[in-house]
């Protein structure tokens, strides 16, 4: 911090505030670091390379789903069907890969169709919420029922295995480095590029003040639709990760993940009312949920108390996320 020495020394609180304004995901980062330290304290082995790889490959799907959720939250919307889209894409690619023989070509083709499916689901949500002006919470709940029905139609019961080439790649290594790290690196590049696009700025503008955005000539409805489409695409990516991790199809796998994705967005300091937030924060928020679960396990909490302690810890960090996020807002 050499350059700060030359300017008048700001008040301590002002400096923290500035830092928060510049890097709004800092509180989430501190929480993640603290949880990592706690994990290491209770079980040093949980900080090993292998354990962290396992944590990342398990929670990569939630990370992606939380990022998906972030883009709609930017615009002040919410998507309660993100988990259902994940389930739908999961069963669709599993069934397609199996039907086409499970070779490399089949896998790639199935993934492409999975992305298209995610896009289509996002488009449906966008049309229903933005174009038809239905209330986002109830409308996306209705579409989630529809998507779940579709997933059940494609694969009525959980179980069809993924082709070996798919989960071996996801769980394996490339040039000696676990594959999930490549996924993480690609994801960071992707969200950095995304954050510089006009669309993200437009989403934030719509979320900040929809009326003002409309009056200054922003195409509010198309922007919100694009937000949902983006959410659908990232939910499809999340589905790829869960398919790699569980190596099978399950029409209900994403149902419980939707509310966790909303929680991760809040943990990351983004405002649910829209107009303010970071995708990196949501990534850290999803990791926080994963780390809380593992800390509670490694602390030696009696098994019947684990869910309660997890719930309590998540409630506390949710509050912390909201309070810190509010402080950081300019």
């Amino acid at each position: 911090m050499a350059e700060t020495a030359t300017i008048p020394r700001p008040r301590r609180e002002g400096r923290i505030r500035k830092l928060l304004e510049r890097y709004p995901f800092l509180p989430a980062l501190v929480i993640v670091a603290a949880l990592l330290a706690l994990n290491g304290f209770f079980s040093p082995a949980s900080l090993s390379y292998r354990a962290l790889t396992g944590l990342l490959s398990t929670y990569m799907a939630l990370i992606l789903l939380s990022i998906a959720q972030t883009y709609v939250v930017y615009a002040g919307d919410i998507d309660l069907s993100a988990g259902a889209i994940l389930s739908l894409v999961n069963v669709a690619i599993i069934v397609l890969m199996e039907r086409w023989g499970g070779g490399a070509g089949a896998v790639l083709l199935a993934l492409a169709i999975g992305l298209l499916l995610g896009l289509a689901c996002g488009l449906v949500n966008g049309l229903v919420v933005a174009a038809l002006r239905l209330q986002a919470i109830v409308a996306t709940f209705a579409t989630s029922i529809f998507f779940t029905g579709l997933a059940l139609y494609i694969l009525p019961v959980a179980g069809t295995p993924a082709p070996a080439i798919f989960w071996r790649t996801y769980g394996g290594r490339l040039f000696g480095v676990p594959f999930v790290f490549y996924v993480l690196a690609a994801l960071i590049v992707l969200i950095t590029v995304m954050s510089r696009t006009r669309l993200v700025t437009q989403l934030l503008a719509v979320g900040d003040d929809q009326q003002a955005a409309y009056q200054s000539g922003l195409p509010v409805i198309p922007v919100r639709i694009k937000g949902y489409v983006l959410c659908g695409l990232f939910s499809a990516l999340a589905a790829f990760c869960i398919t790699g991790d569980t190596a099978s199809g399950d029409p209900l796998v994403g149902g419980k993940m939707t509310l966790y994705s909303v929680a991760a967005v809040v943990l990351g300091g983004s405002a649910l009312s829209g107009g303010w937030g970071t995708v990196v924060g949501s990534l850290l928020g999803a990791l926080t949920i994963g780390l809380i679960n593992s800390v509670v396990f490694f602390m030696g909490t009696p098994s019947e108390w684990q869910n309660f302690v997890q719930g309590l810890a998540i409630l506390v960090v949710l509050m912390a996320g909201v309070l810190a996020g509010r402080r950081a807002r300019p």
Binding site: V128, L132, R133, L134, Q135, V138, A139, F141, A142, T143, S144, I145, F146, F147, T148, G149, L150, A151, L152, Y153, P156, Q210, Q211, Y214, V220, I221
Partner: peptide, 26 residues
């Protein structure tokens, strides 16, 4: 079957919401 039931239920909910409970245009 269950899948069809859920699809019809979700679609009907959307249809009913379109009938009332829509927001105002910008």
């Amino acid at each position: 079957d269950e899948s069809g039931r859920q699809m019809v239920f979700g679609a009907t909910l959307l249809l009913l919401m379109m009938f009332y409970g829509r927001g105002r245009a910008m």
